[in-house]
């Protein structure tokens, strides 16, 4: 058993308590099917699951691969399945999962590249397809100054702008798992972030992607995306409100075809 370099810290729980982490291993050069590998990790009062994984990487098994960066719930890199829940491992305390064992796997519904690392190109392509930037019919010239916005107008979309692209919502969404063509929670929420921005005029362009069978209409409001979201973006609400406004537009077009929208 490797000696933990942090053992001198006051945070070690008395008695040297250990917990088992069962970690998803997939090494494509060695195996076709993934396996779970058990590691014994010391319990520290202030350790999150990511700390335990780093302990494994540093002291027990350097071949374990996973993504992480900021350790403070901002970068969105360390999302994994912990005991079946999609969560940021930097925000999930080991102590809350005792006595264990704690099962750590890669985010569900994505292809696995290696161990805990998933392939996210599908998400990146979908994100780009909804043009997540401010679209103007005509750009103002620099001399005309900035686009002004009131606090109330900011409040309309601010919630949806908090997304950190951690993909927990995709891992928690069974509809995305069943139907990979589904645009998915975060992309729709981010599209709404721009649709609801008073400076943006691109809602029509985004509508062509979102108001489709693969877009908002694939969603059955399981609601788990909003439960797992670490930033309270509430993608489920973004999708439902988009459904409401699309439905109103649909009836408007039906009853007043000349309205031209």
């Amino acid at each position: 058993m490797a000696v933990d370099s942090l053992a001198g810290n006051a945070a070690v729980v008395a008695g040297g308590e250990m917990v088992t982490l069962e970690v998803f291993r997939y090494r494509p050069e060695e195996e076709t099917e993934p396996v779970y590998q058990a590691y014994e990790v010391p319990v520290h009062k202030d350790w999150v699951v990511l700390d335990a994984l780093n302990h494994i990487k540093d002291h027990l098994d350097g071949t374990l691969s996973f993504r992480w960066s900021c350790r403070m719930g901002v970068c969105g890199s360390c999302g994994m399945m912990v005991n079946g829940d999609a969560t940021l491992t930097c925000a999930t305390f080991v102590e809350s999962l005792l006595p264990g064992p704690i099962r750590v796997g890669p985010l569900e519904n994505f292809p696995v590249v290696r161990d805990l690392i998933i392939e996210m190109n599908d998400f990146m392509e979908k994100l780009e397809s909804v043009k997540p930037w401010i679209i103007r019919d005509e750009e103002k010239s620099l001399e005309d100054g900035a686009y002004l916005q009131t606090p109330a107008q900011l409040a309309d979309f601010k919630q949806f702008s908090m997304c950190i692209n951690c993909l927990l919502c995709y891992a928690a969404c069974p509809v995305y798992g069943l139907e990979p063509s589904f645009t998915g929670p975060a992309v729709i929420a981010l599209a709404q972030r721009y649709n609801l921005d008073s400076r943006d005029q691109g809602a029509g362009e985004r509508n062509a992607i979102l108001n489709t069978d693969e877009g908002i209409w694939q969603c059955t409001l399981v609601g788990e995306c909003s439960v797992v979201c670490p930033k309270d973006v509430d993608p489920a609400a973004a999708i439902q409100r988009y459904k409401v406004s699309s439905t109103l537009q649909w009836y408007q077009k039906l009853l007043m075809p000349w309205s031209g929208k």
Binding site: Y26, P28, E30, T32, E108, V222
Partner: peptide, 29 residues
């Protein structure tokens, strides 16, 4: 394929599929 074929620039991804009764695995589902 049954045998892993791995090259450095063409990784072989693992894809799990959803079982038919996926909603029996978890209480929330």
């Amino acid at each position: 394929s049954a045998n892993p074929q791995h090259t450095p620039y063409h990784p072989r991804w693992y894809r799990a599929s959803m079982p038919i009764f996926w909603w029996m695995r978890r209480w929330i589902h």
